[in-house]
């Protein structure tokens, strides 16, 4: 607790208002309820998408319906699951919501597991969806990718911190714009521009030495 408080005071992490927002929302403060929904919705969606791989989930529910269902279950029993969140245990509120959502969706999938019929159009049950292998690049592109890992790229990875390598990957490997990369990282555009400037400088340095 003391370490967490200290970390917050010296600015290493943002203070978490989740417990207060949860209490207010469950007491009927609609504004707090909205803030809470806005905070957890991206996490619930990402968790649902990861579990369903974009297919329909248990009971044929689509992503939005599953998100709403998970939310209602989080609110059930006077918000017991939300109230159980304890920031002193070290887990972020987002991490906690993701974990609980995963459990809730898995429970729903178990309940619907008896009906293992396969719907037309590839709309199978969640358990089937989970068994679908992740997309893998084709062998040709994999070989090409290995060839493209040349000395320049290695030089950049060696010189950059992990945060810089994230920007390198987002902007140059994934092809995002600075705006897109900043939005995905949750940082200001200037942060990405600064890293881009450093990456270009390192590249020029390497090219001059080559």
């Amino acid at each position: 607790m003391l370490i967490q408080l200290l970390a917050t005071v010296i600015g290493l992490r943002r203070p978490d208002d989740a417990p207060a927002t949860i209490r207010a929302a469950l007491a009927g403060d609609r504004s707090a309820g909205r803030r809470l929904a806005e905070r957890v919705a991206p996490v619930i969606r990402a968790r649902v998408l990861r579990m369903t791989r974009g297919r329909r989930g248990p009971g044929g529910l689509d992503t939005d319906d599953l998100m709403h269902e998970a939310w209602c279950r989080l609110l059930a029993d006077d918000g017991r699951r939300l109230r159980n969140y304890d920031p002193t245990r070290g887990k972020s509120f987002e991490g906690y919501i993701s974990m609980i959502t995963g459990q809730l969706i898995a429970t729903m999938a178990e309940k619907h597991g008896a009906a293992k019929r396969k719907a037309p159009g590839g709309e199978g049950e969640l358990s089937e969806a989970a068994a679908v292998p992740a997309p893998v690049a084709d062998p040709e592109s994999m070989a090409a990718g290995r060839q493209l890992q040349d000395a320049l790229w290695q030089h950049l990875e060696d010189q950059l911190s992990n945060r810089g390598r994230v920007v390198l990957a987002l902007v140059y490997a994934d092809g995002l714009t600075v705006d897109e990369a900043a939005a995905r990282m949750g940082v200001k555009k200037q942060v990405v521009y600064n890293w881009q400037h450093k990456i270009r400088g390192l590249t020029r340095q390497w090219m001059a030495a080559a």
Binding site: V136, L148, Y172, A173, I199, T203
Partner: peptide, 12 residues
């Protein structure tokens, strides 16, 4: 240049 030389490993 950087985009052309970026590695594209398998997505796991």
């Amino acid at each position: 240049l950087l985009r052309a030389r970026a590695p594209h490993p398998a997505i796991g």
